[in-house]
Simulated scan of single mutants.
Amino acid sequence: MSTTLDTSRADVPLLRLIGVEFRKSVDTLAGRWMLIVIAALTLIVDLIVVAIANAADFDLRLSSLLWSQKNVMLPIVAAMAILLATSEWTQRTAMVTFTLVPDRWKTVAAKSVVALLLGTAAFLLSLGIGGLLTFAGGHWDLSFSDVTVRYLTWVVFLAQALGLGFLFLNSAAAIVTFYALFVLGTFIVAPIVGPLLGLKSQFVESTWPWIDLYRATFLTYHSDGWPSGDLWGQLATSSLIWVGIPLAIGIWRVLHAEVK
């Protein structure tokens, strides 16, 4: 008896794929624990900042709370995005996924949307907990544009995490690379190495701000109101180098990688 393929059925819709990818991220023991850890760390970091502010008699500000939360929460959310991007390749389910959904761009789009949703939820959680503590005994010093700009920096780093996940197709390599870039760029290169090199070279001084993603995101995150045009330009060019290129190559690799 011969068998035939039914090619008359419609493709899997994108919204269904988004739902599947979302369940794969949160409807597992590991996914649920990561969400619990994010919420717990947010509260713990905020309480530490509140305790320090009270002990030192500092004015508790929402901007300080959000900055402290960002350095703790964002790497964890980025790891979730990377695990989402690499799941087919690390769990060896690529054959099943891409057989059921031959249009790989749909899977890439669904994963990107879910990563953005998870990042947005984490940012709102950060803002909510920080806001409650601020109202209880602090100062809300951020306007709507300030909050929007801070959210955009989260999106930049989430896109970088996705790009590294698609690029390496390996969870461990992508997570280690993201963490190394995040820690070195945020705490060493942007505040120390860049300024020191700029003191010795006028070319570096004029060029460095346009290629240093972590300096650009730091200044954007801490800008008072809407950033200047130069700062937007520096964020755009540095994001193109450190986010756009890995993301473009990574998406191309997912679309063309051989499934073994």
Rank of each mutant, 00 (worst) to 15 (best):
S2L: 10
S2M: 14
S2D: 15
T3L: 14
T4V: 13
L5M: 12
D6N: 15
D6V: 04
P13H: 09
R16I: 09
V20Q: 04
V20Y: 02
E21D: 12
F22S: 07
R23Y: 01
V26N: 02
D27T: 03
A30Q: 09
V37S: 04
A39G: 03
A40G: 13
A40H: 08
V45M: 13
V50K: 01
V50C: 10
A51R: 14
I52S: 10
A55S: 09
A56E: 10
A56F: 05
F58I: 01
F58L: 09
D59N: 11
L62A: 03
L65M: 09
L66H: 06
S68K: 03
N71E: 03
V72N: 06
P75G: 11
I76C: 06
V77K: 02
A81L: 01
L83V: 08
Q91P: 07
T97C: 08
F98I: 10
T99H: 04
V101S: 02
V101P: 09
P102A: 02
K106H: 00
A110I: 05
V114G: 06
F123T: 03
S126C: 11
L127I: 05
G128M: 14
G138V: 02
W140A: 10
V155P: 03
L158Y: 00
L158P: 03
A161T: 01
G163I: 02
A173M: 11
A174E: 06
A174L: 05
V176S: 03
V176Y: 06
F178G: 00
A180M: 06
L184W: 00
T186E: 15
F187V: 08
F187T: 12
I188K: 09
I192K: 06
I192M: 09
G194V: 15
L196I: 15
L197D: 08
Q202V: 09
S206Q: 11
T207W: 15
T207C: 04
W208E: 07
P209R: 05
P209K: 08
W210G: 08
I211T: 12
D212L: 05
R215T: 06
A216T: 01
T217G: 04
T220W: 13
Y221Q: 05
H222K: 15
D224C: 13
P227V: 04
G229Y: 14
Q234W: 02
T237C: 08
L240P: 03
I241D: 09
W242E: 07
G244P: 00
G244M: 01
G244H: 02
W252R: 04
R253Y: 05
E258P: 00
K260M: 11
